[in-house]
Design a protein around this nucleic acid. Structure first.
Length: 135
DNA sequence: GCCAACGTTGGC
DNA sequence: GCCAACGTTGGC
């Protein structure tokens, strides 16, 4: 079962361009239980939106899960996990948070409902809607 | 087990 | 810089 996701990153810390440069990256540092549960549900090949938080506040690209959740090497307690992601493509243009909030079809979107969650599931209809908004 | 206090995230 | 939302911690 393929699912879709949205992953947040502050672009001054790690942007989509950094991911392109690196080829792939271990998505470390998630320290929230709901977000960790979402990562454990990810399958290799699942796609996700890459969202720039704080600066930009917009979906900029699509990425793909390339490795399943495994223990996060930056976590000394051994309780947290990280997946590996790779870049897929940039959107024709970014879709901003303000646009998504203004779109009635995205009313139930988890990104908007629970704004602090850093790894968010995206429903098929929401995925299609955001792609359509990206042009 | 409840809840107040505090810390963090992220939008504005 | 402020604040809302949410999670965590610790006293009782």
């Amino acid at each position: 079962m393929t699912n879709r996701w949205l992953l947040k990153s502050e672009p001054d810390v790690y942007s989509y361009d950094d991911l392109v440069k690196d080829g792939e990256t271990l998505w470390t540092g998630v320290r929230n239980n709901t977000a960790a549960l979402n990562m454990k549900k990810m399958q290799v090949g699942d796609e996700g939106f890459f969202y720039h938080s704080n600066i930009g506040k917009e979906v900029v690209a699509i990425c793909r899960i390339s490795k399943l959740a495994a223990p996060d090497p930056t976590d000394e307690t051994g309780r947290w996990v990280a997946v590996t992601i790779e870049p897929v493509r940039k959107l024709p243009r970014p879709v901003t948070l303000a646009e998504m909030k203004a779109e009635p079809k995205l009313e139930g979107f988890e990104l908007i409902r629970q704004s602090r969650l850093s790894v968010v599931p995206v429903r098929d209809a929401e995925w299609a809607q955001i792609l359509a908004m990206a042009g």
